[in-house]
């Protein structure tokens, strides 16, 4: 019972716990990957499928493949989706990027106004935003539908069943991000902008050249969060987008889950696909997510 072996036991226990924990997190993830590569559209029972099949991926990516229809005769038919699911993937990426970009633009400028400018009813507006944002978007579904229908009469490209219309509604989710960015702006000393003003910067230049670069981390966070939320948003998209060619990934994936038949294989392939842009985004944004970007500017 020396202290060395005691420490070893403790270390082993800690590692065992961590490994268990990681397995708990990884298992669902691996299951989905496995399911996308297995034959047949069943919920998978093994982590490593007995038979590897690329059929689900071919279906999702729109590559024609032969499927056995009759097991006894060995009869096959060539299968290709009417609306290739990869299209939903591109739809989702397009909408998420545009909506997130719009969110950045709107929330960044609004947050600047709330953090730095004086105007009437500022506090009331801020609180109003916060309260409004507490209601889930779904509750206003009927309203969104009616609004888009109305807009559609004048501008069909922004009405129901259009990506522009959906993006418009998504931009309404801006208030929480305004609060986030405002909070960050308020940690930045106003004397830095005053310095810039004395140095001859217009308010716009001070915002663009000084405040924005210092705020890169919060903008990266906001972009990632909104991107993820729009990539996986279902209720609004499912109501607004009505035809298969307009669907987003979430709506499309859901269409594989019929009451009587759940096509888990195809669903999983789509799920894996949706993880890719999020991962890529994280890798790109990582370099903005550095701490200490505002360090050294002021001493409190």
């Amino acid at each position: 019972m020396n202290s060395g072996s005691k420490r070893l036991t403790r270390k082993l226990l800690a590692h065992a716990f961590l490994i268990l924990f990681i397995m708990m997190i990884m298992t669902p993830f691996l299951t989905v990957i496995a399911s996308s590569f297995s034959r047949g559209n069943f919920a998978p029972s093994k982590l490593i499928p007995t038979e590897i099949s690329l059929n689900h991926w071919k279906y999702v990516l729109g590559i024609p493949y032969d499927e056995v229809v009759n097991v006894t005769t060995g009869e096959t038919r060539t299968l290709k989706a009417d609306v290739v699911p990869i299209r939903w993937f591109w739809n989702s990426i397009k909408i998420s990027i545009i909506a997130s970009g719009g969110i950045l633009l709107l929330s960044g400028t609004c947050a600047y106004a709330f953090a730095r400018m004086k105007f009437a009813f500022k506090n009331q507006t801020m609180t109003g935003l916060l309260i409004l944002q507490m209601f889930p978007m779904v509750l206003a579904l009927v309203a969104f539908y009616t609004i888009l229908e109305f807009i559609g009469q004048f501008a069909p490209r922004m009405g129901l069943n259009t990506h522009a219309g959906l993006t418009l509604i998504y931009l309404g989710g801006v208030s929480i991000y305004i609060w986030m960015i405002k909070g960050y702006f308020e940690t930045i000393s106003t004397s830095i902008e005053e310095s810039a003003r004395i140095d001859g910067a217009s308010p716009f230049q001070a915002f663009i050249l000084i405040l924005l670069p210092m705020s890169a981390p919060i903008f990266a966070v906001v972009f990632i969060l909104s991107f993820i939320s729009y990539m996986s948003e279902y209720p609004v998209a499912s109501v607004v987008l009505q035809t298969g060619d307009q669907w987003t990934l979430a709506v499309g994936a859901n269409s594989f889950l019929y009451e009587q038949q759940k096509l888990w294989g195809r669903f999983s392939a789509l799920a894996v696909l949706s993880g890719i842009p999020i991962t890529v985004l994280f890798i790109i944004c990582q370099r903005f997510l550095v701490s200490g970007l505002t360090a050294g500017g002021v001493k409190e």
Partner: peptide, 20 residues
């Protein structure tokens, strides 16, 4: 006049440097 047109320069208590 705007600060930049007054012919002044200011040094703040908290330095107010541009950290980036």
């Amino acid at each position: 006049l705007e600060p930049k047109d007054r012919g002044i320069a200011m040094v703040f208590q908290n330095y107010a440097l541009y950290p980036h």
